[in-house]
Design a protein around this nucleic acid. Sequence first.
RNA 1: UGGGGCGUCGCCAAGUGGUUAAGGCAACGGGUUUUGAUCCCGUCAUUCGGAGGUUCGACUCCUCCCGCCCCAGCCA
Length: 556
Amino acid sequence: MTTPDKPINFIQQIINADIEAGQVGRVVTRFPPEPNGYLHIGHAKAICVNFGLAQEYGGHCHLRFDDTNPESESEEFVQAIIEDVRWLGFQWHGDVRYASSYFVQLYTWATYLVQQNLAYVCELNAQQMRDYRGTLTEGGKDSPHRDRPAEESLTLLEEMKQGSIDEGRMTLRAKIDMQSPNINLRDPVLYRVKKLVHHRTGSDWNIYPSYDFAHGQEDAIEGVTHSICTLEFAANRPLYNWFIEQLPVPSKPRQYEFGRLKVNYMVTSKRKLKLLIDQGHVDGWDDPRMPTLSGMRRRGVTPRAIRNFCDSLAVAKTDGVVDIGQLEHFIRDDLNRDARRAMCVLDPIKLLIANYPAEKHESFNAAVHPNREDMGTRELHFSRHLWIDRSDFSEDSSLSRKKYKRLVLGDYVRLRGAYVVRADQVVKDQQGNLVEIHASLVPDTVGANPPEGCKPRGVIHWVCADRSIECTVHRYDRLFSQPLANSAEQSFADCLNPHSLDVIKNCQAEAALADARVGEHYQFEREGYFCLDSGAGTDGELVFNCTIGLRDTWQK
RNA sequence: UGGGGCGUCGCCAAGUGGUUAAGGCAACGGGUUUUGAUCCCGUCAUUCGGAGGUUCGACUCCUCCCGCCCCAGCCA
């Protein structure tokens, strides 16, 4: 589908070796989002990698919610994530899975660890635990409760579970090594008390497992063979393995890490995205300016463009920042191939064809797509009164033909799909503002070259004033004016582009656009790619979102 | 100055001891074009973070150095 001989990445090499060594029968991967926000472009890569690997090796990929912390998780996010994964074009194997489905098993394993003297209930509070943990360069101190009898820990753990222990008072910790140079191994927390209602288990639990204690075991339960995550979890791998070794788990998954996708001018942090919403900088998770899958969908980005983009990215251990231009390339590439062509005048000014009878009307057939006859034709209406874009006309006849390929007073231009016309005179109001252009058409130039000596400067789009439909166009600019690369973390809110949304009212679109449907993509010729907005529009207003402008390579 | 990971063209990135150091994006030339789009052609790293070393031969092996990222949540 993509590059025929794309190099094999390091994970594929590992899988190949595993298969060759007979270590792995069927490859099983998983995409494990926490339902505490919407999916964004960064998740798209993880989805493509995990589902892609399963597809490639004829294996399975699970969709599993890592819902171990009810604090910020919700059913709304679960549903949104499910919809986004489907929209991106992937189907998980079997039912949607949840970490919360394994809570009982996880708890059983926790008691097993206590019985093996590998875990204990600790009564240090958060601050004390921090103090006991040591620092990056110095080891920590053993908790005073580290050697309490297993029976006592078991009783306390049961009390935590029953809800008789207050939040923050106790935790269940693994007994590993407080001197370990890897801080994750300094007796990590397995369970903490959280008296919260969980969106799936309700009030069944007063304690919830930590990520470290849950993730690997979830993988083991599901028979995941290759648990692929991002680089920041590399330091957790020894802990992941420790649980898999100590516990009687049904399978032994392995964790591999690759570089998380970052794109400049975009934020891919759920916390920051949430902030943008909470502070009112955008309308919501699906605001077309958001790098969320739902935002991009509403903006008009196709799932295939996102997939192609992700497939073009390497699965490697370097963590770079991809230029947003690369994403844009795949968006244009996909839209160019399939988008229906149409004309829409964003800043209309009247063009009166003086030598065309007032009562006359013609219609021409124009290709829906210039390079694809199979997409058929559409009907273009033509009459004496037309709309063209203000920026496509100039009174300055000294403008060179090379520099200005549009309509100039006294010169010719081609009306796309229709006649060649010449601008003859200009009508202005009291203030001297241009209100109308009078032109004359060159006969017999529809679908035919003009006579010798008549050289149109270029081609401009237009719309028949009698049949056009009014619409609103939303044009977007990047949400941030700074690349926000790497650690430009500081105050990302200060980098917001105040002009990220441009609402253009009273645009004039060709009649065929009255049939536009949500989910269809259009190219407004000479402008860009657009789609009908799926969000607002209850008042019958026709709103088109600009997905992305056409590539624009001429210097002004 | 603990541990882990990474450094190849402006960006992403192949390369696993012998290749003219892939490819994509961007950029820049030129051609086609009733979209300044698409499409097509061409240009774009004597050099692989740096310095040494091993070798007939190193981006690939060794040593040291420099730089960047991650880990001290009862977040994931």
